[in-house]
């Protein structure tokens, strides 16, 4: 519908919407996160759900212990190589539509522990991440900001058409392969289809 007509109608007290908008509005205001903490950032995630920061203002206070009931995985903390297969498995167990927030420097890239032998250098090697929050640890406000960013993304997701949202696209994978423990490293060390390393600039 034309935006101008819609604005005119709303001045007359007639509110119009589409099924897509209504659907996205509903689910973006009740994002249920997985009750899933890995390290330091999880404490700030808990702090965000407590009285001072009060994540329930944004409809996300319902932390679900079971992945089957959750929409959002907040990867809050360092993902080690020993933990990475379990994180991927938890993601696979979540029902679509599902979203991932990488909270903190460790979840994004390994952060301060990047040089460690048992530290995964970013969860986006195995999972599609929707919102990255920098910080070590990010403040609770930053998590709230990431949640609002995610809600905006959800509201703009088309359910049909040439480029539908991930959960509405039958060709998009709903599950990702779980890496196995190898003798020296995880096998494979990254999901090649999902993640490619940044190019090394030349002539520096």
């Amino acid at each position: 519908m034309d935006e101008g007509l819609r604005s005119e109608l709303s001045k007359q007290g007639v509110f119009t919407t589409t099924l897509q908008e209504l659907y996205n509005w509903g689910r973006s205001n009740s994002v249920w996160p997985l009750n899933f903490g890995l390290a330091c950032c999880a404490i700030e995630m808990i702090a965000a759900s407590m009285a001072r920061f009060d994540i329930s203002r944004f409809g996300s206070e319902v932390f679900r212990p079971s992945p089957r009931q959750a929409d959002l995985m907040i990867v809050a903390g360092t993902v080690t190589k020993k933990m990475a297969p379990l994180v991927v498995r938890l993601y696979n167990q979540m029902p679509a539509p599902k979203y991932v927030i990488a909270m903190g420097a460790c979840a994004i890239s390994g952060g301060p522990f990047k040089q460690g032998y048992n530290v995964l250098k970013g969860i986006d090697r195995y999972l599609p991440v929707d919102v990255h929050i920098p910080g070590c640890p990010p403040r609770p406000e930053a998590l709230l900001h990431a949640l609002i960013t995610l809600q905006e993304k959800m509201r703009g997701e088309p359910l049909a058409g040439p480029a539908p949202a991930r959960h509405a696209d039958p060709a998009a994978p709903g599950e990702y392969p779980v890496p196995a423990y190898g003798p020296y490293d995880l096998t494979p060390a990254k999901n090649e289809e999902l993640w490619r390393p940044a190019p090394l600039p030349r002539g520096e």
Binding site: A39, C40, T78, G116
Partner: peptide
């Protein structure tokens, strides 16, 4: 499941550079 190689990193850097890592021990 949260073995972040703190001791190895402490041996790779200087004495002072291990100080921020100690913050992340018992956070």
């Amino acid at each position: 499941y949260l073995h972040r190689n703190h001791e190895k990193l402490g041996e790779q850097g200087t004495y002072l550079s291990a100080m921020p890592f100690t913050d992340r021990l018992d956070y």
